[in-house]
Amino acid sequence: MSSSINLTLKIWRQPHSDALGSLETYTLDHISTDMSFLEMLDVLNEKLTKEGKDPVAFDHDCREGICGMCGAIVDGVAHGPEKEVTLCQLHMRHFKSGDTLVIEPFRSRAFPIKKDLLIDRSALDRIIQSGGYVSVNTGGTPDGNSIPIPAKQAELAMDAAACIGCGACVASCPNGAAMLFTSAKISQLALLPQGQVEGKERALAMVAQMDSEGFGNCTNARECEAVCPKGISIRNIARLNREYLTAVLSEG
């Protein structure tokens, strides 16, 4: 049943990229436990607006856990304490009245902070641009059923393809690595015959791009997998390692 709680929020406030940021403390009373985390932030922002203060900037869009736009570190954990949800799907009933929540932006050398909790994740786009696709033009493609794909293989590809590109993996990796993100796309395409054609070039190019963006090195700490809102497995990283090794040995 819904009830209401009172919270103390410590939120990272930073006016713009070049400014110094700090944690600001806010108190928020009568928060319905049916609210989502982002709705709680909406309420805070309405309150700040009415007090003539600057509302907290945060990214969000679909609010149903699929667009990958939202995300923050809540008490040290990306997307908060619940498993396999994004911040917009985290409901306030998972917190207790009197809790103090520390809310910080996703941080990585490759994710500059733009304002408050709002960051620039275009490095992830550039990784995809370097080869995260099958190079086919529109039109002239063979019939969809011309190449049978084992159902299991398609399911595995779908497991990897479920990535929403939110960047939680990077934010919670102790080394700020983007391996889970990169491996998810490489795995998806490596598992499908359509993607295997240029699999080697893809692995080399995407890893090179990932490294040049300033992401850290993977040390198999598994934090990425633990916070991924879509439950993407580090088995994909193992697959990427295999793909990369064979690519390097034969093509690199």
Partner: peptide
């Protein structure tokens, strides 16, 4: 790697928490 990773990760968050259980071994490599 230790040096590179430290450069990325040092003091990233005011509060940071490891979610993985038994992460002691990997964190202390």
């Amino acid at each position: 790697l230790f040096y590179e990773n430290r450069a990325v990760s040092n003091n990233r968050y005011v509060v940071s928490k490891r979610v993985v259980k038994n992460s002691l071994a990997s964190a202390t490599m």
